[in-house]
Amino acid sequence: MMIPVRCFSCGKQLAGVYEEFQKRVEKGEQPEKVMDDLGVKRYCCRRMIFSQVDLIDMIGKFKS
């Protein structure tokens, strides 16, 4: 639905860097380099970010 606030495995806070990650990737930067730059180093935190599917906008349309 929305990016979890923390990484499931290690507990690192990720919801604060997610929007910047999205913006920079949209501009054409390489995702892995953006993650390195944002301090998301471990693969447990990386999978949280790149496996995220934002559904909240879609579900939002159907709430009465």
């Binding site: 929305m2 606030v5 919801a15 910047e20 909240i56």
Partner: peptide, 11 residues
């Protein structure tokens, strides 16, 4: 601590 944390979205 981090001002950019996403909490939720409102329509």
């Amino acid at each position: 601590a981090d001002k950019n944390i996403l909490i939720t979205k409102l329509e």
